[in-house]
Design a protein around this nucleic acid. Structure first.
Lengths: 209, 209
DNA sequence: TGCCGCCTTGTACTTCGGTACAGTTCTCCG
DNA sequence: CGGAGAACTGTACCGAAGTACAAGGCGGCA
């Protein structure tokens, strides 16, 4: 829309393309895999999911329109997990396939502006996740737990925070259990905590130091 | 804008209000703490942060405009941590105080649409955070850890999850360390985890069962 | 009254976590 | 070259965590 560059609608099946083109007369419609005769770089690509995994679909779409074109995922039955995967695959937006044209246009604006569009549901979940997170880690004055640790210590700290036992960590990094103990001891000292459980709380942001 | 309901700009200092009102002639400007002579419910409140904590500022703002009005936080020097706090305090948007008027208007649209506006930087961080998170805790089908536990067990579980040692828990509830061990053992069995660290992860929502 | 589940505690044992003391190898840096 | 720090490992020891087995007191319920 903005700058006059067209949108591209990509779908595995062609059945919805007419509807989209009706709502967006200036847009280009194509099937995923088809060649897009693009004399200009589209301003955005709308990618409708089919049965394939999100990441695979997005990858195909990017091959068609180029990596620089922001992709917005259209899901027939949106769900948060899928949305997360989409964003992890660098999608710029995620919404319902059957969203109202006005909403689609708004999303296009947001994305063109450099923002991301996620559903409210997903945002709520993200917020819930972050609110469980470290209240302290959120405080700017609180130094992050990583600071002052060596690379190995960081690795071990993460493993401990995930609930791994010393023996497991030893296997994971192919070192002796004794060495793991050495790293854990160093971590406890540096972070000023008593045992591995409190270490886990610090790393997971549930506890300040 | 939409529906003709005005925006409200709230700021601790009044120095930027003129600029905003210039960009948004239809808006109402006020200082945080001042009375807003509102004959209609504003469509959104723009809250500029000063030196006070985000949460406190937002709370004040809500008292002025009402809890139902979506609040968008304006930060002179935006940073992700602050944005997270803002969203945890139920802000609907977070952006730079000096954002271009067109962007502000776009944000207003997004918020009016029921979406949230966050910066790309923050979104990237959230995604990184969620990818570290347990996929299961996000799944609604996962039963809460409390179910099937007795009252005492719940208490002990919370204490363990907070990083307390058996001896401390014993003191806290005025029972024997031996009894604490009994409860912890029962918890490990019921929740199907190996040790108290993993118990803590389950209780704190970092791990599925 | 008798059964049952919860809370409680005891003794004894094994395993794991963590510390103390000691030492090697390697790399980086002045 | 010599020093410093990081990574690694060994032996020995202590205390905490967790299990196994056992049992008494209490309140609800058929």
């Amino acid at each position: 829309m903005a700058k006059g560059r067209p949108h591209v609608f990509l779908s595995a099946r062609g059945d919805l393309l007419p509807r989209w083109l009706e709502a967006f007369p200036a847009a280009i419609g194509a099937r995923i895999g088809d060649r897009v005769e693009a004399d200009v770089v589209p301003s955005a690509a709308w990618v409708r999911l089919a049965d394939e995994p999100v990441a695979a679909t997005l990858e195909k779409a990017r091959r068609q329109v180029g990596a620089a074109v922001p992709c917005i995922v259209l899901a027939d039955h949106p769900n948060d997990e899928e949305a997360l995967v989409a964003f992890a695959a660098a999608a710029r937006g995620y919404c319902n396939t059957h969203a109202a044209p006005e909403l689609l246009s708004r999303i296009a604006d947001v994305v063109a502006q450099g923002g991301l569009w996620i559903g409210e549901s997903l945002m709520q979940r993200l917020l819930r996740a972050t609110s469980h997170l470290p209240s302290p880690p959120l405080s700017p004055a609180n130094p992050p737990w990583e600071s002052g640790l060596t690379a190995r210590e960081r690795q071990v700290a993460l493993a401990v925070a995930a609930g791994a036992a010393n023996k497991e960590i030893a296997r994971q990094f192919d070192i002796t259990e004794r060495t793991v103990k050495a790293h854990v001891s160093a971590l406890l000292g540096k972070l000023g905590v008593r045992d591995r459980l409190q270490l886990a709380l610090v790393v997971n942001g549930q506890r300040s130091r």
